[in-house]
Design a protein around this nucleic acid. Structure first.
Length: 769
RNA sequence: GCGGACGUGGUGAAAUUGGGAAACACUUAGGAUUUAGGAUCCUAUGCCGAAAGGUUUGUGGGUUCGAGUCCCACCGUCCGCACCA
């Protein structure tokens, strides 16, 4: 018999699908529900090896949990709205919708070839009206609760994508998607009040089983700091170091600070001030960042502020190193204590004064300071001036102002536009469709206009994990009973790049919906694990131009899906990723081949070495999968198989147990051998109910993993000089005797005085001379 | 600059609480089998050495009977934040 993975895999995928063995029901008697979730993919066109690395080891975990007796739900869907679909569609001259659904079709096929346990009946696609109807509904709930509001705020404008971006989507002053320099622009926008939840988002991190670095990054992003707000004359200032107030020698305002406009009449150099304001407005975010080393500023002449601590008159300056969006947009400068203030003071010859530290609380009382907590987190701008997204369900009426669309009129359908390209004028292409724009006011029924901006895609992905529990519900976004049955998510797996975007937004949504009484839990994802990034064989990021892309389809053709799954698990720690080694997968292929062609005979020996190894392997594989150490789990299986080969016969339980342990990693392979094994041993037709995947995960016998014989390490002065086999539980005295009788040891100890003996039971003895 | 993670053979990597460094693979070499190639099996494979033995976890120091693991300094890589007062 030759191991032919392609044939086997196709066969079993068909059998499983027909039998529906991976369909999930909301309740199974005697089983606990386990919600296992992978971050849903963006329908980019082809499944690349990175997707496989996300989904395959995750599927190993899901299958493992399933065999452990949990009722596992592992759903999949597509995060289908967003800029890339539009950009690709523009490039290829097709409609984003056509492009998206074509890609989904293709990716579905590829996903199925992986042999995952996804329940396809729960599939969701965020650009389906059946889905985004509820995205709009949730927006309306937020609006009613005051969590969605409209405001003219300075926001990040990407001139290439021609839309506003959230702070989280600007990386080093550049657009997260296209790398263009981002400009500051003031437009009226819809925002979500995520800042209301800053404290809760920060505090609740403590109760999550998430990677530490991810929690730290969220903490830093939220950026809490406590301090005081005090007034210098009429100018409020925020400081965390009120104790340094006696060293304050001048004030600095942000150029955008509205106080400057109010002081206009008193300012003697207003022209100069205005020029500076205009200049800093024109700078891109990145220019401001790159100029960070060289500070600039202008004195606001004609006005002075008074330091409330000592009554001193001090000058007021304006500089763009002070940010309008943080604190009060004004600082008290203490050059003696603050490097930045010192640099500025030196450049412009401002006074520098040695400060004496005082008690913050006392001085706060004296200067009437208010205790204030500030966060770096800003409200989430969700308006996008682009076509391929969820229409914001709001109507602007001349008489009534902004009015929400009535719930029964949802969804507000995204019109099919021929020209869907962004306009660049600060309005979405939807504004070009009269049919879409013209509507009646839901309140007064007069003619009115629809909002034409669409929502940030991250809104769609902030709640998709809720919809999976009840994806076809037409009356509710999800049935409360079903939500209760599954949520919160027990295990969430995906890339670390979503740390301050998706993962933060989803947490905010959950908290907001809890407050609205829609959900009864406060955190969506209890446990989180990240996968690393797979690099090309050359150790570089995979890219078409470098020609180092590994196509999973080709690997599957060559070695089979099971080998690809297993190799991805075997290559190293899951969160580390690393280069794909073309030769590496060969080792896995050989391993599977070896098992497939294994010739064996059965015999009984309750205490055989192999049986003990088997139970140790069960223990190791179980613990390793639970801890996402797939690589060492596989190496343990390899050790077992190597030992099996050395033995002349097998204990009856060895083979079936090995197949169970292999089942999560190589599901088709294990099923094939399991079925032929079942047929042979029971001489009846294999029944899918007895599938290896419906077997109970093996348990180890604690008695069998206890060692009776150990290898005692004998050290002299901490150096290994000998090893000896001896029975477990040997006493210190006996061990000493044994050690000193060793010829190799005597060579080192002869004629020397023993100072000390260190004995570690069942492990080692160290003779110090 | 600040914060975090990390640094182990030719390669991917292992290594409970400080206790055998390099498990498991890949690669390479030699051998068996084979018409040949491939596949498979056996042996070897950190470095120096014929061997005995010595030596090895980025560098330097420290704690300890004993350090890849703990502490200090430095070098390097990666990630995140980036004037947040």
């Amino acid at each position: 018999m030759v191991y032919n993975p392609q044939k086997i895999e196709r066969k079993w995928q068909r059998v499983w699908e027909e039998a529906g063995i991976f369909k999930t029901s909301d309740k199974i008697k005697g089983k606990k529900n386990f919600y296992h979730l992978v971050m849903f993919p963006y329908p980019s066109g082809d499944l690349h090896i990175g997707h496989w690395y996300n989904f395959a080891p995750a599927d190993v975990y899901a299958r493992f949990k399933r065999m452990q007796g949990f009722n596992v739900m592992s759903p999949i869907g597509f995060d289908a709205f967003g800029l890339p679909a539009e950009n690709a569609a523009i490039k290829h001259g097709i409609h984003p919708k056509t492009w998206t659904y074509k890609n989904i079709e293709r990716m579905r096929k590829q996903l199925k070839s992986m042999g995952t346990i996804y329940d396809w009946q729960r599939e969701i696609i965020t650009c389906d009206p059946d889905y985004y109807k509820w995205t709009q509904w949730l927006f309306l709930q937020f609006y009613k609760a005051g969590l969605a509001y409209r405001a003219k705020v300075p926001a990040n404008w990407c001139p290439s994508c021609k839309t506003i971006l959230a702070n989280e989507q600007v990386i080093e002053g550049k657009c997260e998607r296209c790398d263009s320099d981002v400009l500051q622009k003031e437009i009226e926008q819809w925002l979500f009040k995520i800042t209301d939840y800053a404290e809760k988002l920060l505090k609740d991190l403590d109760k999550l089983d998430w990677p530490e670095r991810t929690k730290t990054m969220q903490k830093n992003w939220i950026g809490k700091s406590e301090g005081y707000e005090i007034k210098f004359s009429s100018i409020p200032v925020f400081t965390t170091r009120l104790d340094t107030i006696f060293g304050c020698t001048y004030l600095v305002l942000a150029p955008e600070n509205p106080i400057i406009e109010k002081l206009k009449n008193k300012i003697t150099n207003y022209q100069e001030v205005k020029r500076y304001i205009e200049k800093s407005k024109k700078k891109t975010e990145r220019e401001r960042l790159s100029e960070a080393k060289e500070k600039t500023g202008v004195e606001i002449k004609g006005v002075k502020a008074i330091n409330p601590a000592n009554g001193e008159k001090i000058p007021i300056w304006m500089a763009d190193y002070v940010l309008i969006g943080y604190g009060t947009g004004a600082i008290m400068a203490v050059p003696d204590r603050d490097e930045r203030d010192m640099e500025f003071a030196k450049k412009y010859n401002l006074p520098i004064k040695k400060t004496r530290l005082v008690d913050s609380k006392k001085i706060a009382k004296k200067v009437k300071g208010k205790k204030i907590t500030n966060y770096k987190l800003r409200d989430w701008v969700i308006s996008r001036q682009r076509y391929w997204g969820v229409p914001i369900p709001m109507v602007k009426c001349q008489k009534c102002g902004w009015v929400p669309v009535r719930e029964k009129d949802l969804p507000v359908l995204l019109p099919t536009l021929k020209d869907f390209r962004p306009t660049g004028k600060g309005k979405s292409p939807l504004a070009k469709s009269k049919k879409f724009v013209q509507t009646k006011c839901p309140k007064c029924k007069e003619l009115a206009e629809r909002e034409t901006d669409t929502m940030d895609t991250f809104v769609c992905s902030s709640w998709y994990y809720l919809r999976y529990t009840d994806p076809k519900n037409k009356k509710k976004f999800a049935d409360p009973k079903k939500l209760k049955a599954w949520l919160p998510v027990d295990m969430y797996i995906g890339g670390a790049e979503h740390t301050v975007m998706h993962l933060l937004y989803a947490r905010f949504f959950t908290k907001a919906l809890q407050k609205l009484g829609i959900l009864d839990f406060s955190e969506p994802f209890l446990r989180l694990r990240h996968q690393g990034i797979i690099l090309g064989p050359d150790g570089q990021k995979m890219s078409k131009s470098r020609g180092n892309v590994i196509d999973p389809d080709i690997q599957v053709k060559k070695y089979g899906a099971d080998a690809v799954r297993m190799y991805l698990c075997f290559m190293g720690p899951y969160d580390q990723g690393g280069p794909w080694q073309p030769r590496g997968i060969v080792g896995i292929a050989r391993f599977l081949d070896k098992i497939f062609n294994f010739q064996f005979s059965i015999f009984n020996d309750q205490n055989s070495k192999l049986k003990k190894l088997l139970h140790r392997t069960i223990k190791k594989v179980t613990e390793d999968i639970e801890n996402f150490r797939f690589n060492t789990a596989i190496s343990a299986l390899m050790i077992l198989v190597n030992e099996m080969q050395k033995q002349k016969g097998l204990e009856p339980e060895v083979r079936p147990t090995l197949l169970k342990l292999l089942a999560p990693f190589a599901p088709h392979f294990a099923e094939e051998l399991w079925s032929s094994f079942a047929k042979a041993s029971e001489d009846k037709h294999f029944d899918i109910k007895n599938s290896v995947h419906n077997q109970k995960w093996p348990k180890y016998n604690p008695k069998l993993i206890k060692e009776e014989m150990i290898t005692l390490i004998i050290q002299v002065n901490g150096k290994v000089r000998a090893k000896t086999e001896t029975e477990a539980g040997i006493s210190k005295e006996k061990a000493k005797e044994l050690a000193l009788s060793c010829e190799k040891v005597r060579k080192w100890t002869e004629g020397k005085k023993i100072k000390k003996i260190i004995f570690v039971p069942d492990k080692l003895i160290n003779i110090v001379i």
